[in-house]
């Protein structure tokens, strides 16, 4: 048996499913599709999602329903985001995630309910990067797990993935700077709301591109505070725990742009 993990970071806003609205959306969506081709080339067997839009409050949650399907209407973007979904859960990976979480002393809940509202981010990501409907697993983003605990969660995800044969893609679904517009805008004029956020995002992405993990570590707190980064960069913490942020590895930017004023990027871990 041999196992391997590859890594990616994708945005999860439904605007990416409307590439005709803005060139940024088209570029980001296009990069996600290239990612899907990379997955195919790498013979990916399953995708493990960690989305900062699937929040849990009392401990951790892991999707355990073998087939998760339905239609999700986004609570903000309901006028263009009625999203059909049909996930086939890799129940072996989900069970391992639960076991490893318990071994780590975390309170964890297996989610297996008809009508459970899968978050917009995971659905959008899955539509773009998983055209062959590979099996998936989903781990929630616990509001009360801090950065350090989220690294541990990433490490248990790595451990769980490594017990399975074949390639697992660990995909975090998250944004960068989080300063969205609070009024209606013309989609065509969407841009990073604050130029300083744009600078910060680019600085952060440059460090990830170089695999300069000490620079990333040094800028993390300031970046989060200055640019109101999505969920305090828990997505990075998860990747770090899962083994993406080690010497010799990097996260290469495939596309960068704005979605309703926020920063968004598609990144692929170097192999």
């Amino acid at each position: 048996m041999s196992s391997k993990i590859i890594y990616a970071w994708v945005p999860g806003l439904p605007h990416l499913l409307k590439p005709e609205l803005n060139p940024h959306y088209a570029e980001l969506a296009g990069a996600c599709k290239v990612l899907a081709e990379d997955f195919k080339r790498q013979n990916v067997k399953r995708i493990l999602y960690y989305s900062t839009q699937w929040l849990s409050v009392l401990g951790q949650s892991v999707q355990m329903r073998p087939e998760v399907k339905g239609r999700h209407v986004d609570e903000n973007w309901y006028d263009f985001a009625s999203l059909d979904f049909n996930f086939k859960t890799d129940t072996a990976l989900a069970a391992k995630l639960i076991d490893e979480s318990r071994d780590m002393g975390l309170q964890v809940r297996a989610v297996d309910y008809d009508g459970f509202p899968v978050d917009t981010g995971t659905i959008v990501a899955n539509r773009l990067i998983n055209p062959d409907n590979l099996p998936t697993a989903m781990y929630s983003c616990c509001v009360y797990s801090d950065y350090a605990e989220t690294i541990k969660i990433g490490s248990l995800a790595k451990k769980a993935s490594e017990t399975l044969d074949g390639v697992t893609a660990v995909v975090v679904v998250s944004g960068l700077s989080g300063r969205y517009f609070t009024t209606e805008i013309d989609w065509r004029e969407d841009h990073i709301r604050d130029p300083k956020d744009d600078e910060w995002n680019k600085k952060f992405l440059a460090a990830l591109n170089e695999g300069n993990w000490s620079a990333v570590k040094n800028m993390k707190a300031d970046y989060c505070q200055a640019a109101k980064v999505d969920m305090g960069l828990k997505a990075l913490a998860f990747l770090e725990g899962a083994g993406a942020c080690v010497s010799g590895r990097s996260m290469k930017t495939r596309a960068y742009g704005s979605v309703y004023g926020t920063g968004a990027a598609v990144m692929f871990g170097s192999i």
């Binding site: 929040l55 009392l58 309910y113 517009f181 609070t182």
Partner: peptide, 23 residues
Amino acid sequence: TVVGHHVLCVPKLSGLSVDPIFP
């Protein structure tokens, strides 16, 4: 909602509401 204040405006709404936090 991130953009402004929204009001329900469909005469009849029905379905299954599963709480994502306390399912």
